[in-house]
Structure formats: C-alpha cells, structure tokens
C-alpha cells in the first residue's frame, strides 16, 4: 500500500518531506478516504505525510469575525463546536452528517474539501458560507476561494504531492445572516447523500427583504455548484413564498446531476431539488428572524 509513514511536526517539515522526492509522497490527514483509495489501488504512493499532529493545524477559532479551521480539525470537533453552531450553522450540520461518529472522529473537514468528492457535505456548506482555503507550498501561502477549488470529480486544484492546505477561513455570520444545510439521504448514517444543499441568507434591515443569498448544491456537478441564477433572482427582493419557489426551480434548472445506480436518477434528483432548496432558504430565514 505504502512503505513509509512520516509524522510531520510542522507545516514546513511536512512541505520539505513532500518536496524531498517529488511525487513519492502524499499528505494524509484523517485518511478515511485516502486509505481506501490506496487499499483498492485507485491511488498509489510510496510515502504518506501525516499532518494531524502539527500543533498550528489543530486550531479552531474565531477572531474579528473570521472563523479559522485548521487542517487537522475533525468533523466531530466542528459538529460539536458551539462556535460553529452559532456563527456558521450550515457547516456544523454538514459535518454532523458525514459517515459515522467513528469516521467523524478521524476525518478532517479540510480533507473532505480536498478529496473533492462531488457530494462532500462540508464542501457544500463551505461554498454557501463563502469560505476560502489557505494553501501552503515551499514558496509561501495563498488563499483560494472555495468556488475556485474544484477542477473535476475527485480532483481539486490542490496538489497533495507538493502543497498543503493549512486552514479554511469562513466569515462568521452577522446578526442579519444565517445558514442551513439539508441532505437527501437513503440512510441516516453511513451513507453518501443523494443531494445536499446549503444556503446562506443575508437579510436587509427589517428582515423583509433578502440582501443576498448563496445557494450551494451537490452532487450536481464536479464540485459543489452555486445556483447563481437563483441567487440573482433573490438578491434584494422581498421575502415571499413565490419568489423562493421561483428561485428553487431556477436552481434545479442550473443543476446537472448524473444518473446513479446507487443514489438516484438525474431526473429524480432534479425533481426533488427545488423542495430541498426551499426548505433550506426558509429555515435559514426563520433562523435570522429567531435571532431577533
């Protein structure tokens, strides 16, 4: 499967190991996807570089309205974090839906993003939340918006043989904002979603109008897809059922799911998608209203 397993002590340590013999090593965090791929021969590598013991990557914090989640932070930590529930609830909901507790205790949120599976729950939430990831290589770091992260199914723009995502950065909700996540699933645990939707709403003062809405949906394309046309319809409009419904159907019109033998036909997913988008928007709005 692999011959060497290196436990990195710092980001620069990890990067220098990676670049020692280019292409020979790959980053491992929780490893819950990677180990299966290696086991099944879908991926190959000589060495693994484990980053979960790097102290600076274990950070989960909020400062000046910015949430930072380090690359070693697990789904369970996010799902149990009061800070995340209060300031980016869609992410906590998404993190709680992944696999099982045993998986969530090991699998990292950043790993979920990087692995670039089309239905990655936290990636969908983070897309709605407008997150960025910080990528480090030997020459320094750069921030990339999550919208720009995905190339194709199973392929992100992060090269795990050369570089390393150190953290994900999320703007915390303001008083007039909230977010919600729903998942259409065939089983309550240990299942990939048939569809997952995350929505973030920002309301104007008086809570009668949308300021803007971000809608992310998957698996309807290579990575989480923004329902940009639906977002445009809602921007600045009065909040009512009719416009939400219209936007929800617009979201479906933009989605491009595949037929899956395991997780539903394209047709079915397109048909039920609007109902899920509506639920998401309405609940997110209600959450803002409940804040007062």
């Amino acid at each position: 499967m692999f011959q060497e397993y290196y436990m990195a002590e710092s980001v620069s340590d990890a990067l220098s190991f990676l670049n020692k013999g280019p292409g020979d090593a790959v980053i491992i965090a929780g490893g819950t996807d990677l180990l299966l791929d290696l086991h099944e021969g879908k991926k190959r590598t000589k060495s693994l570089v484990d980053i979960t013991r790097i102290p600076e990557l274990k950070n989960l914090s909020m400062e000046d309205g910015i949430i930072k989640i380090g690359a070693a932070v697990t789904h369970a930590q996010v799902a149990e974090s009061e800070l995340i529930w209060a300031n980016a609830p869609a992410l906590a909901m998404a993190a709680k839906k992944v696999g099982s507790l045993q998986i969530r205790n090991i699998a990292t949120v950043v790993g979920n993003i990087i692995n670039a599976q089309p239905a990655a729950d936290t990636a969908v939430a983070l897309t709605a939340l407008g997150a960025k990831v910080t990528i480090a290589d030997t020459s320094g770091t750069r921030d990339v918006h999550i919208d720009q992260l995905y190339e194709d199914v199973g392929k992100s723009r992060v090269d795990c043989r050369r570089e390393l995502v150190t953290e994900v950065i999320i703007p915390a909700h303001e008083q007039n904002q909230s977010s919600y996540f729903v998942r259409l699933e065939q089983r309550k645990a240990l299942a990939l979603p048939m569809l997952n939707i995350a929505v973030m709403v920002s309301l104007e003062k008086g809570q009668q109008r949308f300021e803007w809405v971000r809608i992310a949906m998957a698996p309807v394309g290579p990575g989480p897809m923004r329902a940009t046309n639906a977002e445009r319809i809602l921007k600045g409009t009065e909040i009512d059922d009719e416009i939400i419904t219209k936007a929800a159907y617009e979201a479906a019109a933009q989605a491009n799911p595949r037929d899956s033998d395991l997780r539903g036909s394209r047709e079915y997913r397109l048909q039920v998608l609007p109902a899920l988008v509506k639920r998401c928007i309405k609940t997110a709005v209600a959450q803002v209203v409940n804040k007062g």
């Binding site: 397993y5 490893g31 180990l35 998986i103 205790n105 090991i106």
Partner: peptide, 15 residues
C-alpha cells in the same frame, strides 16, 4: 478518548 474504527488507523497514528 474517541471511538475510532481501528481498521482505519495506520500504525503510526497510534504512536
């Protein structure tokens, strides 16, 4: 302190 699937823990993670 956390429940994990021991089939998904490479030896070094237990170090």
């Amino acid at each position: 302190g956390e429940a994990v699937n021991s089939c998904m823990i490479p030896a070094m993670k237990a170090m």
